[in-house]
């Protein structure tokens, strides 16, 4: 498949942006500067990047608790993301959602999500709206291996299939549902086989190869746009960090992580870019610096932003009721 140099550079930039954002978030969490839970995407960057490369601004995604990568890949703004991690009023959720709930309706980002398996049904709804209104929008639903054991995975794929909805189900099989390995949480190796049960195409790709992900999802997206229904794309990958920051990861051997680090999607792409003269080494260095600066600026923006006003806690629950103002 022919991919333009421009697209390749954009994908590389996004992967870098995710890696640097996540590395910064990791450090900030360790320093106690951001509260709550942080689930990092380091090591899985090729999945979100490759999958979102075929999407337009008006397409939708649903995300997960490990959502930063999806949001960046779909065009989320690092400043508002970082501000949300800091709980500031300038954050995507006005400081009321945090890492697990970042959403940007203007970019079709229907939210990260704290519930494993919740995105499947919401994605079906977004696909239904697109189909009903006769647009050619699609929704990419990101989810992990463990969520494919939830009822919502089966209910969502089934409904998307019988109604031929424009949804692409992108499974990030990172081998673990929190601490339980895939071998212990399901009796299959390739999750894509579950597509058979719903009579939709299913494919497994190397999730650390951004081109492989792009190619598979691109085909699925174009089928969806043409009204040919949903696809299940499984991307095999690995999360370098624990389930959340602070997870001691006693459940997995160090050697396993080391093996996967050798398959790091970013140097792999750099090698391709330089060997194929898409960019020079100097350009690569410069882009790295640019992304680092962008992340630093986002932190700066977040730090300088205000905390939300106390009054804002009761806003935006409803479109028309502000609880404190209500006579009870």
């Amino acid at each position: 498949m022919k991919i333009s140099n421009q697209s390749i550079i954009e994908m590389y930039e996004k992967m870098l942006k995710i890696r640097k954002f996540e590395t910064k978030a990791m450090n900030l969490f360790a320093e106690g500067k951001i509260p709550g839970f942080v689930h990092l995407y380091i090591g899985e960057e090729a999945v979100a990047t490759g999958a979102c490369a075929s999407l337009r601004d008006d397409d939708y995604i649903t995300s997960t608790h490990r959502g930063h990568g999806h949001i960046i890949a779909k065009g989320g703004d690092l400043k508002y993301m970082m501000a949300e991690l800091f709980g500031k009023e300038t954050g995507y959720c006005k400081g009321k959602g945090g890492s697990m709930h970042i959403a940007d309706a203007t970019k079709g980002i229907l939210g990260a999500n704290g519930i494993v398996g919740a995105g499947h049904t919401i994605a079906v709804g977004a696909g239904l709206a697109a189909q009903y209104k006769g647009t050619d929008q699609v929704c990419v639903c990101f989810f992990g291996d463990a969520s494919t054991n939830q009822s919502t995975f089966h209910e969502g794929l089934n409904l998307a299939s019988i109604w031929k909805l424009p949804v692409v189900f992108v499974c990030e099989n990172n081998g673990y549902g929190i601490s339980v390995s895939q071998a212990r949480h399901q009796a299959i190796t390739d999750i894509s086989v579950r597509a058979v049960a719903y009579n939709m195409p299913g494919i497994t790709v190397d999730g650390n190869d951004v081109f492989a992900v792009y190619e598979a999802v691109n085909e699925a997206v174009s089928r969806a746009r043409k009204g040919q229904g949903p696809t299940l794309v499984e991307c095999k990958t690995y999360r370098w960090r624990g389930h959340f920051e602070g997870d001691p990861t006693v459940y997995r051997p160090v050697e396993e992580l080391e093996q996967w680090k050798k398959k790091d999607p970013i140097p792999r792409m750099e090698k391709y870019i330089i060997e194929n003269k898409v960019m020079t080494e100097a350009d690569v260095t410069k882009l790295n610096e640019k992304m680092e600066k962008m992340v630093d600026d986002a932190v700066d923006f977040a730090v300088k932003s205000n905390n939300p006003s106390m009054a804002s806690a009761v806003e935006d629950v409803y479109t028309d009721i502000i609880e404190e103002a209500r006579v009870r």
Partner: peptide, 17 residues
């Protein structure tokens, strides 16, 4: 499939229906 009835309704409502 009650879960997807409610979840799809939420997703469709958030996207214009």
């Amino acid at each position: 499939s009650e879960a997807v009835i409610a979840g799809a309704a939420a997703g469709a409502a958030a996207t214009g229906l």
